[in-house]
């Protein structure tokens, strides 16, 4: 990792606490996430990595009786501020989920949905964006002849790439991946990983993963979380080869988790 390169902070977590009811799920998280880098969040189940991820596009708003403290700055603006439009935020911060979740509609309708809800009526513009995003997601060649087929007929790996392409249509700046390969076979997983590396030139990417090899393969930075604490954060290479914290080392070597 070349630390001489000047890197811009795109997302900054400033002392974040998060509660599900009375249960504290995140303890004072501080983290810088750099633009055009892939940041991986690793840690055992229940460590709070998905909770943290879901704060960045405020998906946790949907969880009743949850509460957040602290600041999460996206381009120096706290996304928890009252005047933040959550719809705007989610256009800026796209998300890909653990299980592929295409809508029970055609491939094209899936792709156009993000623009449709934005009120875009221009068919030509929509077409352009849809095709461009499918190409970016390396799906175009496989499905260009059957855009009107049901998205549910695609294979699991194709569905997941469709979900990635679908989120590119609204031109996000940050993309959150929540264990995107958890339900995929090795070949599909490899395609998604290549895609993530490909996409980081345009986007800031944060990925939650249970697979440490995956984190090592795709990410530039890695955060190790444990029981709601951020234990260690640093360039992936360093964290994997010379972890500072004993718990990080134990987790990476498979002593627990």
């Amino acid at each position: 990792m070349d630390n001489n390169l000047k890197e811009t902070v795109r997302v900054k977590a400033d002392n974040i606490n998060f509660f599900y009811g009375s249960k504290k799920a995140l303890n004072g998280i501080n983290m810088d996430i750099y633009a055009n880098k892939v940041t991986a969040l690793i840690g055992p189940s229940g460590c709070g990595k998905s909770t943290f991820l879901r704060l960045i596009n405020r998906m946790n708003d949907l969880v009743t009786s949850s509460r957040v403290e602290g600041q999460l700055l996206l381009d120096n603006k706290n996304i928890f501020d009252k005047d933040v439009d959550v719809v705007e935020l989610r256009r800026k911060v796209g998300m890909v989920f653990q299980k592929p979740n295409p809508f029970p509609k055609s491939i094209y309708e899936n792709m156009a949905y993000g623009l449709e809800i934005k009120g875009v009526k221009d068919k030509k513009f929509t077409d352009e964006k849809v095709f461009e995003s499918l190409k970016k997601a390396a799906l175009w060649d496989e499905i260009k002849d059957r855009l009107n087929d049901s998205a549910l007929r695609l294979s699991g790996g194709q569905q997941q790439r469709l979900c990635i392409a679908r989120c590119l249509v609204v031109e996000p700046e940050v993309i959150l991946f929540d264990e995107p390969c958890a339900s995929l076979d090795p070949i599909s997983t490899r395609k998604i990983e290549e895609l993530i590396i490909e996409l980081k030139q345009f986007y800031t990417i944060i990925i939650v993963t249970h697979n440490m090899q995956q984190a090592a393969r795709v990410s530039d930075y890695t955060a190790f979380m444990y029981l709601g604490d951020l234990i260690e954060f640093g360039p992936t290479e360093k964290l994997f080869t010379v972890p500072k914290d004993k718990r990080t080392e134990e987790y990476l070597t498979g002593k627990f988790g």
Partner: peptide, 27 residues
């Protein structure tokens, strides 16, 4: 209707009404 479809819709910047009208009800 799977919660994952609602989440997908919200994550793309849909409002609750849009999600209900365009995703939940058709499904």
């Amino acid at each position: 209707v799977p919660q994952s479809l609602r989440e997908a819709s919200y994550a793309l910047g849909a409002t609750q009404i849009q999600t209900i009208g365009r995703i939940v009800l058709p499904a």
